[in-house]
Design a protein around this nucleic acid. Structure first.
Lengths: 232, 232
DNA sequence: AACTAGAGATTGTGATCACAATCGGGGTTG
DNA sequence: CAACCCCGATTGTGATCACAATCTCTAGTT
C-alpha cells in the first residue's frame, strides 16, 4: 500500500503564477496551514515535516520553514526536543486555560464590536448563523467549523481591537484540532449554541446580554466537549 | 560621523563555539532580541533589518530571519506593507487593549500560582522585589525593567499555566518598548507598585487579596503612564 | 522469539547566492 | 525653491546545497 501518496500542488491550484497580488509564498503557506489546522484534517499528534509540506503544497522548503516557525510561535504547532514538529496534543490543563482565556477575552471583543454593528453587518451575521445550522444538521463537520469560526470572528473583527483579536486567534489555533477531533467522533447533531441569543442582543444593542450570550456560548461548547470526552 | 558603527559580536561573547549546549542559533538570537525589546534599547519605531542584526550579532542572516519571523508572530515586531520590519509604535487603542488583557489574565495566573508557593519561593520573591526598589531608587532603568519583569513572571511561572503564560508574554513584548520610553523620559523615582501587598497576600494564602494586588499593580502602572504622557 | 547493533534514509539548521522591489540622494527641470 | 526623476545601494524573499543529529528498518546474535 502506498502510504506516501502526496496530493501535489494544492496551493496554486488555478493560477500558475502571479495571480495572488504579490502575497509572499510563506504568507500563502501560512494561510493554508492555518486553514488545515482550524477546519481541515490536521489532528492532534500529527507529525509535520518541512520537506513533506513543501512537496505536498508544491513549493520549496524555504517558505514552509517560515510559515511553520510562525505557527510554532502562535503555539498552533509544537516544537519537540528532537526538533521535530507536530500538532500539539490536548491536555486537561490546557483545555482549562483555553476555556478561561476565551470566556474573558471574547465577550469583551463582542462588547467592543457592538457600536459598529449596523443592519448590513447584522444581516451578514444571520446568514452566517444559517450556514452554521445548515452544516450542523447536514453533519458537515468542516463546514460547521468554518461557519462557527466565521460567526465569532465576524463579530470580533468589527471591534477593531486587533491586539485582543490576535490573542484570541492564537487560542483558536490551539483549540481547533482537538475540537474537530471530538466533534468528528461524536457528531455535530446534538450541538447547541447561543448564536440566536447573541444576534438578538446585538439587534437590541444590549451589551450586557451580548457578553452573557457569548460567554454562555463558549461555556456550553466546552461543557459539551467535556461531557462527550468523559463518556468514552 | 560614522553612524554605521556596529557593536560586533554581542552574542558568543565569551565562548566562541559549542558552549551553549546545542541551543540553535535562531533560538539564541530570539532570546537576545527579546531581551533588547523587554529591557534593552529597542524603542518604538526603530527599524529592524535582517542583515543589520546579523552583522551586529555576529551571525549569518539565516537564524536572524527565523527569530524575527517568530517575533513578528508574537507581535513584538511589526511587518509593514513594504515588507520592512520595525518595533511597533504605541497607540491609545493598543494601550487600552493591553491594559485590559493584563488585568484579566495576570490576576488569574497569580491565583493559580498561589498553591505552589512555599517559603523558598516567597523568599526569592522578596529578593526580587528588593532589587526592584533598589533599581528604582538608583534610577537604573534597565535594572528596574528586568527586576519588575522577574517579579511578575516568577509568580506566573509557578502557576504551570503555560498557555495563559504565553499570552501574557506576548502582551509584555508588545508593551515593553513603550513602557521603557515613558519611564526613560519621566524617570523611575516617582514610581509606586503593589508588590509588597502581593507578597503579603501570598504569605497569608489569600487568593482574593492577591488578585486585587496584581490587578491594582497593573492599573496603577498604566495610570501612571497615562498621567505622564498626558502632561507633555 | 526478543533484543541489539548498524547502515541507510530523513530531518531541522545554517550558509550562500540570486533577484525583484524599494529606499535614499543628487542632480535636473519647472 | 520645490517637485520630479534616475541610478546605485539596501532590503526581504526564495532556492539550493551541506551537514550533523535523529529516526527507521533490517540483519544478526543470544
Amino acid at each position: 500500500m502506498d502510504t506516501k501518496a502526496k496530493k501535489v500542488v494544492s496551493l496554486f491550484g488555478a493560477e500558475p503564477a502571479g495571480g495572488s497580488d504579490d502575497i509572499p509564498i510563506h504568507e500563502q503557506v501560512f494561510r493554508e496551514l492555518r486553514r488545515q489546522i482550524l477546519f481541515g484534517g490536521f489532528l492532534p499528534g500529527r507529525a509535520i515535516t518541512l520537506r513533506g509540506l513543501a512537496s505536498s503544497l508544491g513549493v520549496s522548503p524555504m517558505p514552509v520553514r517560515e510559515a511553520v516557525r510562525r505557527l510554532i510561535a502562535e503555539r498552533a504547532l509544537e516544537l519537540h526536543g528532537n526538533r521535530r514538529v507536530s500538532i500539539p496534543a490536548m491536555t486537561s490543563e490546557k483545555f482549562n486555560q483555553i476555556a478561561f482565556a476565551r470566556s474573558v477575552l471574547e465577550p469583551e471583543l463582542a462588547a467592543r464590536a457592538l457600536p459598529s454593528f449596523g443592519s448590513r453587518e447584522l444581516r451578514r451575521l444571520r446568514e452566517i448563523d444559517a450556514k452554521v445550522d445548515r452544516s450542523m444538521n447536514a453533519g458537515d463537520l468542516e463546514g460547521y467549523m468554518r461557519a462557527n469560526h466565521a460567526f465569532h470572528f465576524t463579530i470580533y473583527r468589527l471591534s477593531g481591537a486587533d491586539t485582543l483579536l490576535a490573542l484570541v486567534e492564537s487560542v483558536w489555533l490551539q483549540f481547533g484540532p482537538f475540537m474537530r477531533t471530538v466533534y468528528g467522533r461524536y457528531g455535530t447533531s446534538n450541538l447547541d449554541d447561543q448564536h440566536r441569543r447573541a444576534i438578538a442582543a446585538i439587534a437590541a444593542n444590549n451589551e450586557k446580554e451580548l457578553r452573557d450570550a457569548i460567554d454562555e456560548d463558549i461555556r456550553q461548547g466546552f461543557q459539551f466537549i467535556r461531557d462527550e470526552v468523559m463518556s468514552d
